[in-house]
Amino acid sequence: MKNSIDQQIILAQRESQFSGSIFVKQGKSTLAECSFGYANRSEELSNIADTRYGIASGCKIFTAVAVSQLVEAGKLYFDQKLKDCLSYNFPYFDESITIHHLLTHTSGIPDYFDEEIMEDFEELWIDKPMYHMRKLEDFLPFFQEGKMKFNPGERFHYNNAGYILLGLIIEQASGLSFQQYIEKNIFEKAGMKSSGYFAMDALPKNTALGYIDKADGTWKTNIYSIPVQGGADGGAFITAADMVLFWEALLDNTFLSEKTTSALLYPHVQEQDDDYYGYGVCIKKSGNNIKKYHVMGYDPGVSFHSAYYPAQQIKLAVCSNKSKGAFAMLKVIEQTQEL
């Protein structure tokens, strides 16, 4: 089966010109581990198993785990109101917004990047350059005085700003910066030694540059297209193997008790059809059964998918340093393994 999946991945990569790394594991057995393309095109440095990739919103689950840890520590609770968690002023926000609403994208607050209004993520940095975006509070002016889109709990609407607020809540409750908290309480506990929230202008070795391909065949890197440092809504760097280590630690209750882990992985809100959302994680159901838990991230120069399939005990990560390509490789793996 391993040879079959390798062959299908290679064929799909030739067709799509996927650039990145793939790691697939079933139980303790590795089904596939491969890398393609360049981490640095100018220097022709190849992507390898140890290459770190940006994962955009794929790391919202780290934020959700952190909040859940602080709930277990008695420093927060899921039904706690936003107004009781942060000292910042939000003049038009509904006072009934809770941490649960923020975790499940049901708060109704305005987003700093609203896909219903804006099409290009790079438009955000016209008035406020991305190289100023180093701390969570730097995002507040984008949405702090905005008006509610709907009443809290009314419906699901994907929202990055809600996770910025969760990051600020983590900082206030823990006394650590968001990045310090995640690196100490998640990355270290899971053995994710290559992962971190690295600044785009100070990337460590073995880190892939993100590439934006243009229609005329030219390209540019994404250094001027995304915030200089990631935070609670996205922007961590990981290796594909590190992401699988995260799933293993989560499912082994390394981060949280079994009860709290179950709460994080519970399908709290329906997105559409068989798609649900837990705390920081997407959930695909098949009838009454969970088909997969998955996270994804897309930014200019970044595409990422990672999933856990409980029935087959398969965990995988597909990391790419191009704006698209991860989803196509994910589908090939799912078809080959009949997931």
Rank of each mutant, 00 (worst) to 15 (best):
G278F: 04
Q179P: 00
M192K: 03
T221F: 05
M200P: 07
P204T: 12
E248N: 11
I290W: 03
A173T: 00
D201E: 03
G287I: 13
N222I: 01
L245F: 04
G278I: 07
L250G: 11
P204L: 15
D275R: 14
Y181A: 01
I283N: 14
Q229K: 15
P227F: 05
L176N: 02
I290K: 09
E258C: 08
L203Q: 04
I223H: 14
Q179W: 00
D275L: 11
G191V: 04
Q180V: 02
I283Q: 11
P204N: 14
G231Y: 01
K259S: 12
S195G: 04
L256P: 15
K285P: 09
F187M: 04
G175T: 00
G234D: 05
T261N: 03
S195N: 01
K193V: 02
I283H: 13
D252G: 13
P204K: 15
A263I: 14
Q272F: 01
Y277P: 12
P227I: 09
A173K: 02
H268P: 06
N206I: 00
K189T: 01
I226P: 03
L203I: 04
W219E: 09
I223T: 10
C282F: 12
Y279Q: 09
L250P: 04
V228C: 09
C282P: 01
C282K: 10
G234N: 11
A215R: 11
P267R: 14
Q272M: 13
P267D: 07
K214N: 15
I226V: 14
T261I: 04
L250K: 08
L251D: 06
Q272K: 15
G231W: 02
Q180F: 03
D213F: 08
N288A: 02
D216C: 06
Y197L: 11
G210W: 02
T221E: 11
K291S: 12
V244W: 07
F187W: 06
S257R: 12
F187D: 00
S257A: 05
Q229S: 15
Y211I: 07
H268M: 09
K220I: 11
N206D: 03
W219Q: 02
K284L: 13
Y197P: 00
L250D: 08
Y276Q: 10
G230E: 04
F246W: 02
